[in-house]
Write a protein that binds this DNA or RNA. Structure first.
Lengths: 345, 345
DNA sequence: TTGTAGGCGTTATCAT
DNA sequence: ATGATAACGCCTACAA
C-alpha cells in the first residue's frame, strides 16, 4: 500500500520520507540537521519514519552542496608497521566520534608521493589530509587539495619549511629533545662510551632529526658523536646492520635505534647471533613505545611519544582548521619522555 | 585573462575546462571516461587543459548519477593487531589499483556492531563492505546497505549461515583443516600427549572453528581432546592464561594458540616466568604467520594463511559482485599450511 | 516554523 | 562523434 510496504526499496530518499510524513522535502532535511529550526514533535515524527524506511541522508549529495565531504584522507606508506597502525586506529576512532570517516590511501614504500595518487585522492574531496609520508612539498600538496590544508609533523628546532614555502600548512611539533636527553643521561650514568645510532629510512625527516638531536646531545655532554649505521625502520635490516656493526666494525656499548622495531632486530642479533647479553654487554634504546615494547622477550627501554596526546593534537588541528578555514598557520606541540625498562644497565 | 591565469581557482569544474577547450561539458566528461567515444586528439587536448587547470572529476557528483561511489567500507574492531593491519594494507593497495578507495570504520572491540555505525556508514554509500567483525547478522547488514552485498568469512564445513538467513551474501571459505592437520601430525610425531588450545575471543567465529577442528583432528588421531583455555587474541591475556595453566592447572606438552600474538604471550610466559624451555619442555604452535613470527626471539612454528591469496580472493569477490550485482551467492576458497620453525621439538 | 525555487558537478539519454 | 537536456539527492536562500 504505502511506500513502507515496498518489497525492497532500492534506497529511501528524502522525498519518500517527506511524502510518508506529509511534510515537505526540506522538513526532512531539517530534521537531520540539529541546528535547523523545526517543531520538535515534527522532527521526532520524521526521524521515526525515516528509521522505518531505513533512510539515511546521502553524504555525496550533501557534500555537493555543503562543500564538506566529512572525509579525512590518510596517506600511509605502510599500514602494517606497528606505530602507523596504532595511529591510524586512534585517529579513525577520534575522527569517527566527530563525524568524519577515514579515507585510506597507500603511498609507495619509498616515501615518494606520486601525483597520480594525489590526483586520485583529490577526486574524493577530503576535508583534511594527514600525510604520514614526509617528503611531500607543501606547495605540491596544497596545490592539489583546494579545500584541505595539509598538516606536517616537524621536530624541535625544525625550521625546515620556513621560507621554503609560501603555502599554508599546519604543524605538529614534536619535541624530541626531552626524551632523548633522558636517554643519553641514563646511558652516561651507566658508563656507556661508544653509542651507535641505528637509523631509519634515510629520506625520513623523523630519522634525520633524531640523528641530529642525539649527536647534538652527546656532544653537549662531552661524549663522542654516535657511529651512524643505516637502517630503514624494519626488523630484518636492523638485524643485519647490527651483525655488521659487531662483525665488520668495532661494535658499540649501546645502540640507539630510530624506532622500536629496529631495536628488536638489534636485540635479537645481539642475543641470538652474536652471543652478547642485553643489557649486560650492550644497552639498547628504542623510539616510539609501541605495545610490543613491554613484551617480555624484549622489555625495551624506549623514548615514548604519547599516542593519545598525539592523536588529540592532530584532531584539534583538523577541527580548528575546518571551523576557521582562513586562519593563519596552526601549531600543536607534543613532548617525549623516556620509559625505562630492562635493556639498559 | 583566461581562466588559466586565475589567482587561485577555488576548484576547476568540467564547465571551466570545456570553455577553455571550446568543447561541451559532455566532451570533458567523456575525455575522462575511457569507454566513451571521443576523437583521440580531442581527448588529448582536453586532458592536457584539464591538467593545466588542475581539474579532477568530482567523485561525489559522479557517484550521485552513476550510483557507484568507488568506496569500499572496512569495519574493523582493532586496526593495530598485526594480522588485521596487514590485511588492511594489502586490501587497500589492491583496491587502489582497481580504482577504489578504502573507507575505514572502527567497530567496538567487543565485536558488537551497533546500528549507529552502520547507519553512519550507509550515508557514504560504499560499493562494497568488508566486515572483520564476524557476528553481524547477514540480514542486518544487507538490510542496511542497499547497493552493497556483504562478504563473510567462513570455515571448513562452516554451514553456520545456511538456512539462518535469506539475505544474499558472498563468502570466503577458509579451509583450516590442512594446516591444523599438519600441525597435529607434527606434534604427534614428537610424542606430544597433552595439548592445550589457547583460544581467541570467544565470540569470534574463527576461534570457535579452530577449536572445533583441532579437537576433531586430535580425536580422529586417537589423542585426547585439548584442554581449552580462554584468551582474547592479545599477548597479555595469553601470558596470564599460560601462567594459570601451569601454576593452577596441570600444564601441557604443547600449546596451540588461536593466533600468533597469543603464541608469543605463551612463549614468553613459559620462558621468562615459568623457567621452561620452548620447545624443550613445551611446544608452541601459532596461527596466521604474521611477519613477527620469524623474529629470532620467537621463531614460531605456525599455521599460515597466505595473505596475498586471501586478499586476491577478497578483491575478486568484490569485483565480480560489482560487475554482476544480480548474481547468486559467490564463494572463494583459501587453503592453510603449516610453516615449521623452531617452537616444536 | 514552514514551503518554494534553484543549484551543487557530474553522467545518461536522446538527439543530430 | 558530438551536443542539449534532464536527472541524481540534497541544502541554502528567500518568501510566506
Amino acid at each position: 500500500m504505502t511506500a513502507r510496504n515496498d518489497r525492497k526499496s532500492a534506497r529511501a530518499t528524502a522525498d519518500l520520507v517527506a511524502r510518508e510524513a506529509n511534510v515537505s522535502r526540506v522538513a526532512v532535511s531539517r530534521a537531520f540537521n540539529p541546528n535547523a529550526s523545526l517543531k520538535p514533535e515534527k522532527r521526532d515524527r520524521i526521524l521515526q519514519i525515516a528509521r522505518e524506511l531505513n533512510y539515511t541522508p546521502d553524504m555525496a549529495a550533501r557534500s555537493l552542496v555543503t562543500r564538506r565531504s566529512h572525509l579525512v584522507g590518510m596517506i600511509v606508506p605502510d599500514v602494517c608497521s606497528p606505530w602507523e597502525s596504532q595511529e591510524i586506529d586512534a585517529l579513525t576512532t577520534a575522527l569517527q566520534a566527530e563525524g568524519f570517516a577515514t579515507l585510506l590511501f597507500k603511498a609507495k614504500a619509498d616515501f615518494s608521493m606520486d601525483q597520480t595518487l594525489l590526483t586520485y585522492m583529490r577526486g574524493f574531496n577530503p576535508d583534511s589530509v594527514i600525510a604520514f609520508t614526509e617528503n611531500v612539498d607543501a606547495d605540491v600538496l596544497s596545490g592539489f587539495l583546494d579545500r584541505a590544508v595539509p598538516i606536517y609533523v616537524s621536530y624541535d628546532d625544525g625550521a625546515q619549511f620556513a621560507g621554503t614555502s609560501s603555502s599554508l600548512y599546519d604543524r605538529l611539533l614534536v619535541r624530541q629533545r626531552d626524551g632523548i636527553e633522558q636517554a643519553v643521561a641514563l646511558l652516561q650514568g651507566y658508563g656507556v662510551r661508544r653509542v651507535a645510532y641505528l637509523g631509519g629510512k634515510r629520506q625520513s625527516l623523523a630519522n634525520r632529526e633524531r640523528e641530529l638531536m642525539i649527536t647534538k646531545i652527546l656532544v653537549e655532554r662531552g661524549m663522542q658523536p654516535p657511529t651512524v649505521i643505516d637502517g630503514d625502520y624494519t626488523y630484518d635490516t636492523a638485524y643485519r646492520a647490527t651483525l655488521d656493526l659487531f662483525r665488520v666494525e668495532d661494535g658499540a656499548d649501546a645502540i640507539f635505534a630510530a624506532n622500536d622495531v629496529g631495536a628488536f632486530g638489534a636485540i635479537d642479533a645481539l642475543r641470538h647471533d652474536l652471543g652478547l647479553s642485553v643489557p649486560g654487554d650492550v644497552s639498547v634504546i628504542g623510539f616510539d613505545d609501541i605495545p610490543q615494547s613491554h613484551w617480555k622477550a624484549y622489555n625495551l627501554t624506549t623514548v615514548r611519544i604519547d599516542l593519545e596526546d598525539r592523536v588529540r593534537a592532530l584532531v584539534r588541528l583538523i577541527l580548528r582548521r575546518l571551523r576557521n578555514p582562513d586562519d593563519g598557520p596552526l601549531t600543536e606541540t607534543l613532548g617525549t619522555r623516556l620509559v625505562v625498562r630492562g635493556t639498559v644497565g
